[in-house]
Amino acid sequence: MLAFFVRRLLLLTPLLILISFGVVALVLLIPGDPARQLAGIDAPQAEVTAIREQYELDEPLLVQYGRWLGGAVRGDLGSSIFQDRPVVTELGDRLPVTLSLAVGALAVMLLIGVPAGILAGTRPGSLLDRLITVFTSLSLALPPFWVAMVLVVLFAVTWRVVPAIGYVRFTDSPVDWATHLYLPWFALGLGGSATLARQVRGSLVDVLEQDYIRTADAKGLPPRRIIGKHALKNAAIAPLTVLGIQFAYLLGGTVIIEQIFSLGGVGQYFFVALVNRDLPVIRGVVVVVALTFITLNLVVDVLYTYLNPKVRLG
């Protein structure tokens, strides 16, 4: 188990270096003179020169990377070009918002996707199975922003049961925190819940055909226990993989959802930075998101070892 963990961590280091280098090299993707682009078309030459010097854009890429990496390991990701606030400070304020959104959406995915998948997978071909298939197809077809707007119109504007926009910190008022997030959670998690439901269904149908399920039946176990104990643990492996990947989409989805619901999260920060070509912010956000994603995959790998005892040998 320890060897497994150590090997996975060792594998992560080159991955992180690769990602961060790619992020710093983003500057190469900006056509023409990056400093001119950053300063704006109409900016005077002096400002362009200042920006070039401030961000050391005329130095070789490796030097730029070394400098950035040196700062990053000390917890300094530079400052925004436009707001002059350190990226780290800004992320510290905004990360809780985005994590509240993403984790809540993940919960929505699990709470809808898993039961729907189990209901469908245990009775393939039934009316309920077909209804759930209709639901999943529909949910996958609807773009999150559209779902978000319909939800706002219905729940916030027409029926006025929840606020339409804004964010309240959990530490200030847990109830308000939740009421402000219900709609974003649902809008963001719905698509993922459909994918998950399909995965769980398919996986469960396969597992229920396995010989060891017949063994469990031959032991005289009640169906609830056969499914709950013997089928689900084995059927969870494939959906778990999907869940890891889905979380990446979820993080991407926060960019739009935070805009719609005026949540001051990382997604919104990133969106603004992208529009303004705010290079230090883009670099910082991408690295933090990559780190989150990698950590999550590590968690998924550890969960595998629980689900599949054979992996423990690795």
Binding site: Q210, Y212, N234, N308
Partner: peptide, 8 residues
């Protein structure tokens, strides 16, 4: 080989 549940 397949009649025992691999997860328990």
């Amino acid at each position: 080989m397949t009649s025992l549940n691999p997860a328990y």
